[in-house]
Design a protein around this nucleic acid. Structure first.
Lengths: 232, 232
DNA sequence: CTATTTTCTTAAAATAAGCTAAAAATAGCG
DNA sequence: CGCTATTTTTAGCTTATTTTAAGAAAATAG
């Protein structure tokens, strides 16, 4: 985390295999965070910043595909490699559907795994410039530029803070659909607890204040679930 | 056009690129209509119904921005993605000003393009999956908008809560027919027990209060079975 | 006709969200 | 380093939504 090593997010329920992988990858100069099931993984994913995810498919609590789907809700870019015992075709298809970047069937050699990790990192680092994250959004009369953190209406430009922009971006991505509280909290605050929840409510108020200049735009609350950016 | 595939309106003057894009998108199960310049595009836009537009910016006859502006005059909703060789900032801003939904700079990978298409379709609800969900209902003198959670009568608008709207929507779908208690409970409360049952009764009372402004509308109880929204 | 179940209605309780202001944390600068 | 401006979090009070409770009314079975 503190140094310039690349961070690997590893979730593997087989403790022996998990530890061996962790140690071997650390020998190859990666930082490795190991979690023993999908739930534990999901609870820690947003707490750190990871360069690549290695997920076992078959795990108790939350399988690898479900975990990958959750990760994709808050991070559409981080590369994901599945580790699996089976080589079933349907499993592969399922894996790629939830956004996998590669797939490796057990048993595999450390050399093979590392080659794939390197290949993916090479690919994603090279393309770091053009990620698939949308940066500019049209919301009703507004033009919202996430990168520049500006919200422009009728030529008037309002500067947004980092958190305001991050939350608004999420609402835009989910526009007209429900943005669940936990998704927003994990994505923007990297933590889901009482206080970050209160904080988010404050930011919702701020965004509503900005957005009220266009009466066709509304942030609707869905009690107990989350918010919806409605564009009428 | 004939099937349930989504229709892509593609305007690209580079014939090679255009054909490759068309074929690749068709492989991914979209219908693609390809036009070779802005004029040809504009002449055909109104002839069909399109779910998304992919417009090259630099084209002979009529550039992408002008074409987008013309499209926006007759269709304020259809998503537009610009394809451009330049990554000039002013160009992007110009594009978003005329109402673009996204922007992609050449060269781009098919994967990237498809991700953006999917992201936009997801948020505009044009997903193949949820197209048969009715959102606006006429109930007697009322106009009920489920998405906006509004119930309008004689210009007066009543805001509904999430649960009120969900229950009313179900009653509308079953209008003049029996909506069974367990169906409603499972759909709105995701659970069918004594307490959710009592809660539903409370909501029925609330809805009756709203709906009594039109005497031709009535929620009738069918003892032991459920409710019926009667429109006389 | 009576006992039992189901529904209706109102009110109270519990939880979630909204809003404002102040405190705390952070970043930028001389 | 210390000061200031900005951003974010925390706190407290208000409002909204949903659930629970309780008693009366209606429907039904026997």
């Amino acid at each position: 985390m503190k140094n310039n090593k690349l961070n690997i997010f590893l979730v593997e329920d087989d403790t022996n295999l998990g530890t061996i992988l962790k140690e071997a990858l650390e020998m190859s100069d990666y930082n490795v965070s190991l979690y023993k099931d999908g739930d534990e993984g999901w609870n820690n994913f947003t707490k750190g910043t990871f360069d690549i995810c290695l997920l076992d498919v078959m795990m108790p609590k939350k399988d690898g595909f479900s975990l990958a789907a959750e990760i994709r809700k808050v991070d559409t870019a981080v590369p994901i490699i599945f580790l699996t015992a089976k080589s079933l075709k349907e499993d592969k298809i399922e894996g790629f559907k939830v956004g996998a970047d590669d797939y490796i069937t057990k048993p595999f050699s450390m050399e093979e795994l590392e080659l794939r990790i390197e290949a993916i990192l090479r690919r994603t680092n090279k393309n770091q410039s053009d990620t698939n994250e949308q940066k500019i959004f049209n919301i009703g009369k507004f033009l919202f530029n996430y990168d520049e953190r500006t919200l422009i209406i009728d030529g008037k430009s309002q500067n947004l803070t980092t958190k305001e922009a991050a939350l608004l971006r999420l609402l835009c991505i989910y526009q007209n659909n429900l943005l669940e509280r936990d998704v927003a909290l994990k994505s923007v605050w990297h933590d889901d607890n009482y206080f970050t929840g209160r904080s988010m409510d404050v930011y919702i108020t701020k965004l509503r204040k900005y957005l009220k200049e266009d009466e066709h735009i509304e942030i609707i609350n869905v009690h107990g679930s989350g918010f919806r950016l409605m564009i009428k």
